Computed example of a mutant assay.
Amino acid sequence: MLTIHHLGRSQSERILWLCEELGLPYTLVRHQRDAATMLSPPALKALHPLGAAPVIEDDGLALAESAAIVDYLIARHGQGRLRLAPEHPDFAHYLYWFHFANGNLQPVMGRLMMVSRAGLPADHPVQQAVQGRLERVLALVEKRLGEAEHLAGAEFTAADIMSVFSLSTMRLFQPVDLAPYPNIRAWLQRMGARPAYQRAMAKGDPDLVPMLG
């Protein structure tokens, strides 16, 4: 049986959502952040040296990194569903946006959080550089979602699953105003209306109201 180790309010919500979309059975182990530091508990460090979530256990294998887990589950248990095959006309779009989530979107959100906590003034070059990078990243996502219903194109795929966290739950840690981005907000509403997303969030973070606008 697949076991998902889920840290509350973290990227591991992606894995719960994926499994709900694919209809994969799993055992959920919920971990809570330290109330003072907001870091993961020692139990996660016992599973993986970085002590971060998500981590899955499957037939004796322990695997971390959300993108690697998504790829693994789709290939091993999902019969290739929710990814696009090389012959699909939107295959390159799928690859780009799948990797964009952890290659650009999540890192810039994390950098903004660190810089904001450092208390730099708004006109500091580092603060301006990070804010400018975020605005360019969001503008790119906004443009894409004005061209297509989903990030990869017409079809809902794992590329959407990978990106929602950074534009929703991550904003609990680093507020970002999405008012200038109507396409992103409409897409978040569509994602939040998916029954599998709702089931995943209810199981993983039942006390959380998703930030979908």
Rank of each mutant, 00 (worst) to 15 (best):
H6S: 11
L7F: 08
S10H: 06
S10R: 03
S12T: 06
S12W: 01
R14N: 09
C19K: 06
E20N: 08
E21D: 07
E21P: 00
L22E: 05
P25Y: 04
T27R: 15
T27V: 12
R30H: 01
R30S: 14
Q32K: 07
D34P: 04
T37V: 12
M38S: 13
M38E: 12
L39K: 09
P41C: 11
P42T: 10
L47S: 08
H48M: 12
P49C: 13
P49N: 11
A52C: 09
A53T: 02
P54M: 12
D58W: 05
L61R: 01
A64D: 02
A68G: 11
I69H: 01
D71F: 00
A75E: 14
R76S: 08
H77K: 13
Q79M: 08
Q79H: 14
G80Y: 09
L82K: 01
P86A: 15
F91Y: 15
L95F: 01
L95C: 12
W97R: 06
W97V: 11
F98L: 14
F100Q: 04
A101L: 10
A101E: 07
A101F: 06
Q106E: 14
P107I: 11
P107Q: 12
G110Y: 01
M113Q: 02
L120M: 13
A122Y: 05
D123F: 08
V126C: 06
V126H: 08
Q127L: 06
Q131V: 12
Q131R: 14
G132T: 07
E135T: 10
A139V: 00
V141P: 00
V141M: 14
K143G: 08
G146T: 10
A148N: 04
A152F: 01
G153K: 03
A159Q: 04
I161C: 11
F165E: 02
L167W: 03
T169W: 01
M170Y: 13
F173C: 01
Q174F: 02
A179G: 06
Y181I: 09
Y181R: 05
I184W: 01
A186N: 06
W187R: 07
Q189T: 15
Q189E: 15
G192M: 06
R194T: 10
A196L: 08
R199E: 09
A200K: 04
D205F: 02
P206E: 11
M211W: 09
L212T: 08
